[in-house]
Design a protein around this nucleic acid. Structure first.
Lengths: 196, 196
DNA sequence: TGTTATACGGAGGAAGCCTCCGTTTAGCAA
DNA sequence: TTGCTAAACGGAGGCTTCCTCCGTATAACA
């Protein structure tokens, strides 16, 4: 598989990289929709590869979860940077929180799934908490500096609100509902200045 | 099945009652050991009945979980009463907490398993919280009245300690470890009077 | 002791888990 | 380009679990 080929100096095969990518994308979709119980065969099917290919890239259920989750975190970090550059501070925060809903959907499954194997996953969990706090903290700091939002909350408060809202039981369409709740929440963060 | 036979006035069959009992006992054992993922077929095997019998008594996975859990709670309530009558207050509390470990082992699985179906299970959850708090509260009150333990903790604190300790990751033999931790905790509750 | 509602057991089809193995293909060197 | 080979691929197949259906057995009642 990909990692091993590094030993021999030969470049990893293009199809291997491509399939790994396809699997991660498929897994994200499947796990977000169906939780961590979702079948690995469904992931392979959605990715359009054989089941053996999935197992070759990710020997255990946990392995593919971790890979998906870590990538989600990294993408959120990138997104935070992009939004901070391109959007007004408050809007950046709002958009970032909305984008995070999908991540929490995946993660919710992860928490249960990762529980058995403590070692590697607690490390990943610590890493992710750290990264997310940093993102929210930066977005908030900018908005506070511009006087756009109140300054008496910290990043952990906001993250807690996000996660708490996502725990509204998963009816069909829950992600939209949470999105709306988040908009209201962000609106509540705003400094009231000169409103009619 | 058992419930339905009430409609016709005919008494429920003895074998039906017996099998239901066997299934509950077996399920308790299987779920405690293996979490809620444990196979229902394993439960039926352990109970020595056919798989269809299990499904007849408990049409869904959730149904058997709820039945097991509710029974656990009720047994703990009874145990609290018995211990309060038969043992010195502090010892009663200690023994009750130790007995609770098994319940938490079952429940840990339940929380995850019940999550999908919110309605019935939140009711059960509220019921159980209430019952357990009452038990601990009574045991503690007696011990406090006798001056055996400190009086600056309430029943929720102690329950939280119990549950928190049980979340030490499930290595083989975790129940024993938690038992020892609990003993230490209970020892910490004691009033220090005249020790050498 | 006979009748019948009731419950029982297990076969069996569907789906998932994971492994093994014959086939294909991408990288590299000639 | 061509050929070699490590590397990756797909899917069959053995196993387990889920859940249902149905023929058989038996407990309750008359």
């Amino acid at each position: 598989m990909g990692e091993d080929s590094a030993k021999t100096g030969r470049r990893p095969r293009a199809d291997s990289l491509r399939n790994r990518e396809l699997l991660l994308v498929a897994a994200r979709g499947v796990f977000s929709a169906g939780g961590p119980e979702a079948s690995l065969e469904a992931v392979a099917r959605k990715a359009g590869v054989g089941i053996a290919t999935l197992y070759r890239h990710f020997p255990t259920r946990e392995a593919i979860f971790q890979a998906v989750y870590r990538r989600e975190i990294d993408q959120l970090v990138d997104l935070a940077v992009t939004l901070a550059a391109d959007e007004p501070p408050l809007e950046a925060l709002r958009l970032w929180l909305r984008a995070s809903i999908g991540m929490v959907a995946t993660k919710k499954g992860m928490l249960a799934a990762l529980a058995p194997a403590a070692d590697s996953s607690t490390e990943l969990f610590a890493y992710s908490s750290d990264q997310l706090n940093r993102c929210v903290g930066n977005l908030m700091a900018t908005a506070v500096a511009r006087g756009e939002i109140r300054d008496d909350l910290d990043s952990e408060d906001v993250l807690r609100a996000l996660i708490g809202m996502c725990y509204t039981r998963e009816q069909p369409g829950w992600q939209d509902k949470v999105g709306r709740l988040l908009d209201v929440f962000v609106d509540g963060l705003r400094m009231r200045r000169n409103e009619s």
